[in-house]
Nucleic acid binder design. Structure first.
Lengths: 198, 198
DNA sequence: AGGGGCATGTAAATGGTTACATGATTAT
DNA sequence: ATAATCATGTAACCATTTACATGCCCCT
């Protein structure tokens, strides 16, 4: 009744995602805005960062929509939220319909695309600092991997799978920056023919 | 006078980037909104997509800010924009200060992180369709690589470098989905011990 | 004459960021 | 006491998306 027709079909916006990030975390267990905020600033940061302001707003909307219940109010005005059946249904709907995820934008790629507007030396410097940055990022993910104990439950397993994605992305980016620097060298060498990069 | 102090220091927002995408394209040569729109829908799409509405608005702001001049008005009200010296300075400033790029969000990674909320079969299906999707993406980038003739000028070179990034990212994502499917199989095999994924 | 492509614009809604603001509780 | 931490909220601004709106030029 309540769950299947109207509440989902009206006023929804498929493109939203902090909604689903919060809902997803609440699916793992009840929590307050303050609790969730800590998760968004740590674990979730490389996946779906959120500010305090936005999170509290979204949690209120989630409750108004019936996706969560603002359960007990604890000390210091703490509001603990729990996901409802309607909320689980909405989460499930979103998880299984990745059709229109928000478009990806990359400031890094944009800069790379425009690197011809800088001097060769500036362009090289940009790639070099990018390399340093992604290597640092890689090390930080490796540290997370090595300092956590990953058990075999679903939650840890999929967190590990997500981390593996981040690790591989950082490795590839580091390799790519080195490849770019090689290509830049090759272009600057006068006698050398340019390679045709398979 | 006009260029150095006020126009740049007031009302700017370092996080903006469609501004810089448009400015960057205009740095390669004068163009109209309509011209740029075609570029945003093709070449720029995997880098920094933009809608018609947003682009026209931004072009007007760019002109008001003195970063471009709305040069000759041609047939059918066509406005051709050209970058100014102030505009080049602003582009340069942005290109060499990547400090605070907008934070990255990945709906894919978010779903992966929450995959424990689906049944094993649904989770597997999600990864499988992701694999199909990224493989298709990879093929489309390969086609661009193979059907263009990349000359040695800066513009082509850096476009090729950006494309290489997209190619490697797609390959990496495809490999990663296959790794995830292997891990899922391993978890479902009863007698087999789970691998500890280096 | 009429259709298709060229060409620009505006309005409303939403998501995200920054900054501001307030108060309660716990530990020192 | 008072500082740190817990805990939530609001207001203003900006970027982005969707939908609506308009008109000109060229070809057949």
């Amino acid at each position: 009744m309540i769950n299947s027709d109207m509440s989902i079909l009206e006023g929804y916006d498929d493109r939203v995602s902090l909604r689903h990030a919060a809902l997803g975390l609440l699916a793992k267990g009840p929590a307050s805005g303050y609790d969730l905020l800590k998760t968004f600033k740590s674990t979730m940061h490389p996946v779906w960062p959120a500010t305090q302001s936005q999170l509290y707003g979204e949690l209120n909307k989630l409750a108004s929509a019936g996706f969560t219940t603002a359960a007990a109010v604890g000390a210091r005005g703490r509001k603990e939220y729990a996901i409802t059946d309607v909320g689980r249904a909405e989460l499930h709907r979103w998880m299984t319909s990745p059709d229109e995820d928000p478009p990806q934008r990359s400031a890094v790629l944009l800069r790379v695309f425009l690197l011809g507007e800088l001097t060769p030396s500036e362009a090289r410097q940009y790639i070099e600092s990018l390399r340093d940055w992604v290597e640092q990022e890689l090390r930080s993910y490796e540290e997370i991997r090595d300092s956590s104990d990953w058990s075999d439950n679903d939650s840890d397993f999929f967190a590990r799978v997500a981390l593996e994605h981040l690790l591989r992305a950082a490795r590839r980016d580091a390799d790519w920056t080195k490849w770019v620097l090689d290509e830049l060298n090759r272009r600057e060498q006068p006698g050398q023919p340019a390679s045709s990069t398979s």
